[in-house]
Design a protein around this nucleic acid. Structure first.
Lengths: 336, 336
DNA sequence: CTGAAAGCGCTTACAG
DNA sequence: CTGAAAGCGCTTACAG
């Protein structure tokens, strides 16, 4: 079907070894041979079969990237950064969307392992899986991004939001809020748990203990944020400020508000973890904690590539987040 | 390094052929062999090497998807839909981001071809390339999505926005606008050219000829929309309504407006081609032309899969877009 | 039902 | 500098 190295060899009147040599450029080949081969390659439109090459060389020059949700601009930006860094070093990346489902994640890991990727970047579901173990036990380099699983000895690149969350809590308290609520991600998840704990702790330390009914859990997706916000708004005594633990849940929360005649920030203040451009333009612009996502993606790819090329020891990296104050947080309604 | 079919065969005391047979399930194998093989597979944690299998079977069960820009929610949604449809049929997809660059596109096509993908979905740059030709001439099924190149005999799945644009123009005219402007995508591009032509033609037909200085060109990316909008606003006689030809350029336009004290829609009306959730929440919510993107992605994947499995004749498909009226278009300022 | 062997398209020691 | 041959890990006619 496709033209192979044999066809080229035949047409150029040389051995396949010679063709391989001129194409790889690794070995010396006489000018005459070189020219003959090159013109046959050109003439036949020969493109090497990467499958065969990888099988032989035991390296696929391919990275696997499994994100939790492609619809989340955060992961999209990470993917973009990873792809850039990878392709600069001659690696391509297979992007997979686990869609917040451990099953999908497992099945993609299976595929990636079978395709013998040279390395894996993943923002993993809560717990490890046999599929993830396959990578670890065959020594394929893995790095976690954003999320993590402890005790696997796998390096993680993620953002630490504690300081920024502290600033946010202080910001809200200073504005006069006494009833803070949070729409948390899954607490078993590292970012979910960390953001929640940080928010609760900072509030408590400052004498603004957060009651149970003000703590809602979502799955980092939009619809769950909307649902949580609806419930919060329906409370007999609703909170005056709510913190959404990622951008999609915040989007959902904003949609929930929009369904009612509640105004932001007059009736309720809203803030988000994870900043995106759109937050500048919403009504009102949303106060958010920005993650240096480009840097995150880059660092992750560099780390993985370093591990693959044995140039670097795996070592977790934590980047600082930053609070961006906009207009979605104001003083609480006077009527309390 | 990794455990191979040989290891399994050895440990189970059978031939590799037998192992292969029980794993593929294509041939009959005695229960005893079956059990022995399965327990060895389990015990050794064997995972087949897809590279070897693909090389042998001449099919990789992999699709290539090259999008113009992963940061565009439109393509992200398409990717999501394609991935879902593909994985349902046992195909994985390699997602590549051409980033609006013909060079990157060419290099990804090269990689995808070398990895012997079974089919390709691409929203192509303006013109064809030798890399794209490789696919065509080796008979690998290709389908275009959103964008297209004529005369290649490649089926295209895209959205027709003419009717919706007509409605939009009427909407604007009815509101009393006389100075319409457009921030167009690259006119050599099919969606770029089509949207521009439709907008200009509809306006002209209704006696609202659009002067040259009201026609600005971007590259479908945010920054170009921002730039174009800045220029439009700086005109001695600025337009009263502007139509951005995709969501990212509209985002840029909104940012440009935000830098000034111009208000939407009081001072200038804005509308976008390509609707996204965020447009509900911006200040003001943006009137936009919605593309049924899920349907688009699904249809594209189905078509490709059909072609791969020889079940279907390639046949272009055009889906209708729909105008969603929100608040970003109002009457023009009185002072004219 | 099972195994030995050929072959998918490459690359790379090994000779010469 | 060049070629014949082995081998990467599979699958599948071909025998038996």
């Amino acid at each position: 079907m496709s033209v192979t190295i044999k066809d080229v060899a035949l047409e150029a009147g040389v051995s396949t070894a010679t063709v391989s040599r001129v194409l790889s450029g690794k070995d010396t080949v006489s000018m005459r041979m070189r020219d003959r081969v090159l013109s046959s390659v050109e003439g036949l439109g020969y493109r090497p079969n990467a499958l065969a090459r990888s099988l032989r060389e035991e390296t696929s020059k391919t990275l696997g990237l499994v994100v939790s949700n492609v619809m989340n601009p955060f992961f999209t930006a990470v993917a973009r950064a990873v792809e850039d860094a990878a392709s600069e070093k001659g690696y391509s990346v297979i992007l997979c969307n686990a869609d917040e489902s451990p099953d999908k994640e497992a099945s993609y890991l299976d595929v990636l392992f079978q395709k013998r990727v040279d390395g894996l970047i993943i923002s993993p579901a809560r717990t490890s899986s046999p599929q993830l173990q396959s990578f670890v036990s065959s020594g394929v380099p893995v790095v976690f991004v954003d999320r993590t699983i402890e005790d696997l000895g796998i390096p993680t690149v993620r953002v630490d939001g504690r300081k920024a969350i502290e600033e946010l809590v202080e910001h809200l308290l200073k504005l006069g809020h006494e009833r803070l609520a949070v729409i948390s991600g899954p607490p078993e998840t590292v970012p979910g748990g960390d953001r929640l704990k940080a928010f609760l702790a900072c509030a408590a330390e400052r004498g603004a203990e957060i009651p149970e009914e003000y703590v809602r859990f979502g799955d980092f997706r939009r619809e769950s944020g909307r649902q949580a916000m609806r419930e919060l708004l329906r409370l007999r005594c609703p909170p005056t400020a709510v913190f959404a633990a990622n951008n999609l849940m915040c989007l959902g929360a904003l949609q929930a508000v929009k369904e009612t005649d509640v105004r932001v920030p007059e009736d309720v203040s809203i803030a988000s973890f994870d900043d995106i451009v759109w937050f500048e333009l919403t009504q009102p612009p949303v106060t958010a904690i920005a993650q240096p996502v480009r840097e995150l993606g880059n660092a992750t790819a560099e780390m993985l590539l370093g591990m693959i090329e044995k140039a670097r020891e795996p070592e977790s990296l934590i980047i600082e987040a930053e609070l961006i104050v906009r207009d979605s947080c104001g003083p609480p309604p006077a009527s309390q």
